[in-house]
Simulated scan of single mutants.
Amino acid sequence: MEKFKSANDSRVSITELMLPSHSNFGGKVHGGHILNLMDQIAFACASKHSQMYCVTASVNRVDFLHPVEVGELLTLRASINYTGKTSMVVGVRVESQNITSGTKRHCNSSYFTMVAKDENGKGVPVPGLLLENEQGVRRFARSKQRKEEAFSRDTQFDSSQFKLENHLESLSSENVKLDLR
């Protein structure tokens, strides 16, 4: 196994025609179908980078920016943004394209944390990421910061650390009624 690999070595993309069977009750492509495709391409990218079977550990924020219409082409692109010891952050970008007009729209971007596993389900080391340009450094640094912020957020609201009095005032402007007994 190589010690370091570039993002280009593991980059993958897929394009799929959105069919009526992919639609929801509103006639748009179901978000769950798009998420399924995103998870598949994140798996392919992480497995290509690590040369191991990978599992999804987490997904960081999925915002659906534009609806996808039946009959449009959906293109997903994935690349490795960050590598830890056994984990990788895969950036996934989704674009739709109207076949007749050629109009392309960015539908969403998301970040999947994938973990490489051996045949016994244990985490295994992955090749590091070779950063070759400013964009690669920016993506790596952003993923590292996002990881640190998630850890901080998770520990701040852990039940053993949570302080009720630190949050009561901020709730006064929210659509909530307190009835603490």
Rank of each mutant, 00 (worst) to 15 (best):
H22P: 12
G91Q: 08
E16G: 02
T100Y: 02
F64S: 02
L65Q: 14
V68M: 01
G26A: 15
E2M: 08
L164T: 15
F162Q: 04
T86Y: 11
E169G: 11
A150V: 09
T86Q: 09
S79Q: 14
E149D: 15
Q161N: 15
D158T: 01
D154Q: 11
H49R: 08
S13K: 12
G128W: 04
A57E: 01
E69Q: 11
G71C: 04
P67N: 05
E16Q: 14
K28L: 08
E134R: 11
A150F: 13
K122D: 10
E16V: 15
R93W: 01
K3A: 14
P67R: 00
V59D: 00
E169W: 11
K48D: 01
S10R: 10
T75Q: 13
A42M: 06
A42S: 13
T155L: 07
S87I: 11
E165G: 04
K163Q: 13
S87C: 10
F151M: 11
T113V: 15
T113K: 05
G121Q: 05
E169I: 14
S143R: 03
V94I: 15
K48A: 10
A46M: 06
N120R: 09
F157Q: 01
L164S: 07
R181F: 14
F162N: 05
H49I: 08
S58L: 02
N24E: 06
